[in-house]
Design a protein around this nucleic acid. Sequence first.
DNA 1: TGCTCATTCAATCAACCAATCAAGTGATTG
DNA 2: CAATCACTTGATTGGTTGATTGAATGAGCA
Lengths: 114, 114
Amino acid sequence: MQKPMELIDPKICRNTAAIFRALGDASRLQLLALLAKREMCVTELTEQLNDNLPAISQRLKLLRAERLVKTRREGKHIYYSLADNHIALLIENGLAHGSEADDSVCSNQETGET
Amino acid sequence: MQKPMELIDPKICRNTAAIFRALGDASRLQLLALLAKREMCVTELTEQLNDNLPAISQRLKLLRAERLVKTRREGKHIYYSLADNHIALLIENGLAHGSEADDSVCSNQETGET
DNA sequence: TGCTCATTCAATCAACCAATCAAGTGATTG
DNA sequence: CAATCACTTGATTGGTTGATTGAATGAGCA
């Protein structure tokens, strides 16, 4: 056996993996990309994403648990935004890579454009 | 309803999410971090990570399917390495964020250190 | 204070995921 | 060409995850 190499601290590893896992879903990613532009409340997100409200609330709950988004209450509305700029960078970075990746991974080729 | 905002192309979104999902596991992340240093064959990875061989092979299969790693055969050995530098950057970036994150997320505090 | 709107929470269920083990493949060596 | 080494594959199985529904909460307004 070769000399053992330095491994990453397991705690950090789990932490980081949790962040990546939270980013690892198309619906959540779309949601985050929207929040990267500006803060929004659940209702507006629901309309923008054309999805049902509890589902989005559920996703936001998960993202909040992983501290990827933060909230701000204003009267009746609760506004969501990205927790910090680091996250925005990570998303941007990932999307850049995801864009240039080949399309042979996806079997369906709907454009989704209006 | 406010004016609809530009959503990300669903195909790109799924693609990116798939990459993040592949990164979203502590074992795989540790594996990738090791490969970020230098290419290695399965046997060596098994020793370095102190895990069983089929498990690691299985993880590599998944990572290969998502094109995060690439292989190079040399005689009996198959050497694995990161698919491209973009991936290395993404991992580095994520780990940086994962390191500075608080530890209250994890409920168990085993160190896992030998 | 009671009503309503915006949103969250809790529980259930289906789908997906990853670990494991045994068997298979493909390249080198005698 | 048969054996061995290095690794992959396939099937199973237990554990996680996410969607859904309906009830609950909390702020503002009459």
